[in-house]
Amino acid sequence: MPDTVTSPAELAQRIRRLAEQREVVIVGIAGYGGSGKSTLARALQALLPDAARVRGDDFLDPLGSRDRSDDWLALHRDELAAVLEALRAGRPADFLPVDWATGGRQPARVASVAAVQLVDAVGLLHPELLPLLDLTVWVDVPLETATVRGMRRDREAGDDHDALWREVWAPNERAFDARHAPRERADLRYAPPVPDSP
């Protein structure tokens, strides 16, 4: 059973120890939509001056994410894998982020080389990506709680995605769980100290 950490500082210390053993450490931060993956990634980036972040949302097709899938097919894993492979080799990586407003692509960006690479995404702990991740972390928030958080976050941003959360995204998470068991595959579980109640 994976160990549990309860603070970003504790997790950052584990990452530092791993970074002492290799030139580049790629940390995969997974969890349900709305669980706090991005929040944890930002907190770790603030604690680890030598860390860079690869946002999973830059590789998540906004149109494809409206479809039911047991494999989170909307995540462009091949593109994300190419970026991670380059970063592991110490090379910056060009990529074309998706555009959530239009469904197309944004102008090219460059993922910078860093000793620690943090990547957060839904559908991340997948057999195609696991070999590229040196440390995997599951943000351990129940699906119901994460879904409520996600709906609230979107409404606060002016987007009513409640139907998508209930009818597509939460079912996709359950189906991905059944197929790939990401919570059990993770090296560590991160338990936020005071999870919200649904």
Score class of each variant (00 low, 15 high):
residue 88 R to H: 06
residue 94 D to E: 15
residue 92 P to E: 08
residue 104 G to W: 02
residue 72 W to N: 04
residue 118 L to F: 05
residue 81 A to C: 13
residue 98 V to L: 13
residue 74 A to Y: 10
residue 113 V to E: 08
residue 119 V to W: 00
residue 100 W to T: 09
residue 96 L to A: 15
residue 109 R to S: 09
residue 73 L to K: 10
residue 71 D to F: 05
residue 76 H to A: 13
residue 117 Q to T: 15
residue 68 R to D: 03
residue 100 W to A: 02
residue 112 S to K: 12
residue 71 D to Q: 11
residue 98 V to S: 08
residue 70 D to W: 08
residue 106 Q to S: 10
residue 110 V to C: 14
residue 107 P to C: 05
residue 92 P to F: 10
residue 98 V to M: 12
residue 72 W to G: 03
residue 105 R to N: 13
residue 110 V to W: 10
residue 96 L to K: 05
residue 77 R to Y: 05
residue 102 T to A: 05
residue 97 P to V: 03
residue 110 V to Q: 14
residue 73 L to H: 12
residue 111 A to S: 09
residue 82 A to Q: 14
residue 75 L to R: 00
residue 112 S to T: 14
residue 87 L to F: 00
residue 101 A to Y: 03
residue 93 A to N: 01
residue 114 A to E: 01
residue 121 A to P: 06
residue 81 A to Q: 13
residue 101 A to L: 10
residue 105 R to F: 15
residue 87 L to S: 09
residue 112 S to A: 15
residue 95 F to I: 04
residue 89 A to M: 05
residue 118 L to W: 07
residue 84 L to P: 08
residue 115 A to M: 09
residue 98 V to F: 15
residue 118 L to Y: 12
residue 97 P to R: 03
residue 110 V to H: 06
residue 77 R to K: 06
residue 96 L to T: 07
residue 82 A to I: 04
residue 69 S to I: 07
residue 117 Q to E: 12
residue 105 R to L: 04
residue 86 A to L: 05
residue 71 D to H: 09
residue 120 D to R: 02
residue 104 G to L: 07
residue 109 R to G: 09
residue 102 T to M: 03
residue 79 E to N: 15
residue 103 G to K: 00
residue 113 V to A: 02
residue 87 L to H: 14
residue 84 L to F: 08
residue 68 R to N: 11
residue 88 R to Q: 11
residue 113 V to Y: 07
residue 68 R to L: 15
residue 117 Q to D: 08
residue 74 A to R: 11
residue 103 G to Y: 02
residue 82 A to W: 07
residue 98 V to W: 15
residue 68 R to Q: 09
residue 89 A to I: 01
residue 90 G to Q: 01
residue 99 D to A: 11
residue 113 V to R: 15
residue 83 V to N: 07
residue 104 G to A: 04
residue 83 V to D: 04
residue 103 G to Q: 01
residue 106 Q to Y: 02
residue 80 L to P: 07
residue 97 P to S: 12
residue 116 V to E: 01
residue 85 E to D: 11
residue 117 Q to I: 15
residue 74 A to L: 00
residue 78 D to L: 15
residue 103 G to T: 00
residue 116 V to A: 08
residue 87 L to R: 12
residue 85 E to G: 08
residue 79 E to C: 15
residue 70 D to Q: 07
residue 94 D to C: 11
residue 121 A to M: 09
residue 85 E to V: 14
residue 115 A to W: 03
residue 80 L to D: 10
residue 102 T to N: 06
residue 113 V to P: 00
residue 96 L to G: 12
residue 116 V to T: 15
residue 99 D to Q: 13
residue 75 L to M: 10
residue 82 A to C: 14
residue 90 G to S: 05
residue 107 P to F: 06
residue 104 G to R: 06
residue 122 V to W: 00
residue 118 L to R: 08
residue 80 L to K: 05
residue 70 D to N: 14
residue 76 H to G: 03
residue 77 R to I: 08
residue 113 V to F: 03
residue 118 L to M: 11
residue 77 R to P: 06
residue 88 R to P: 08
residue 72 W to F: 10
residue 120 D to K: 02
residue 79 E to A: 14
residue 97 P to W: 11
residue 88 R to C: 00
